[in-house]
Design a protein around this nucleic acid. Structure first.
Lengths: 110, 110
DNA sequence: TTTATTAATCGTATATTTGCGATATAAGAT
DNA sequence: ATCTTATATCGCAAATATACGATTAATAAA
């Protein structure tokens, strides 16, 4: 942000937007999909499938790690990744509880 | 993006990331929450509640409109907004179907 | 030991996002 | 007609994000 206003919002608002931010790029969605499909997956396998350079993929993986959407361990020269489903569950809970959903055909609605 | 690689990803990957992108800022989460709470809501009411200038809020509203997360109509000098629940439902469907969730305690997982 | 493989990080260029004040526009009030 | 209110848009500055090639580091293979 131009001037960081994050502090001015609630923790839950930030948690939700941070999660959303992590999946707000098609490459990261594609990476998550690939890891979920394979259950466990090394970096090179993702690079093979995506239309991006290795360094770029590595950067996206780093962001997904930071947001705790994936877990990663070093396995020799390779890096092994898998989905951190706990974070997904927490997100779903926050997301569903966040907006007090009224009827979809709200007559007051514009 | 530095060079726009959107075309290189699937339509669903882009749809999901676009939705996520719309709620990837705490201000937009707060705006959605406020509109949902009030069911229908004018711009000024949101500006009152948020720690942001009117022009900034207006910009965020524009983005939410573009992503079809809200609907808006002009009501005299005022602008009336409400949640577009249809988009939320569509997102939930895509999101749930996207990642073939295996067991959370995947033994293969790192 | 040398070489190859794998992946993270650095440096850099470019694009986008965020935020605000100023301005424009349009309806409503006086 | 003029003033006020409400909101969108413009122009700008600063911060972030995206992408890549080059480099580094560390293991594995020869």
């Amino acid at each position: 942000m131009a001037f960081n206003k994050k502090d001015e919002f609630t923790q839950k608002e930030n948690e939700l937007s941070d999660f959303a931010n992590a999946i707000s790029h098609p490459a990261r969605v594609a990476i998550l999909k690939e890891i979920a499909k394979r259950e466990t997956c090394i970096c090179g396998e993702i690079v093979e499938v995506l239309p991006l350079a290795q360094s770029t993929v590595s950067q996206h993986l780093k962001e997904l790690l930071k947001a705790e959407l994936i877990k990663g361990t070093v396995d020799g020269a390779k890096s092994c990744y898998c989905i951190n489903w706990k974070t997904f569950e927490r997100f779903e809970k926050i997301f569903n509880g966040f907006f007090t959903k009224t009827n979809s055909n709200n007559p007051k609605c514009c």
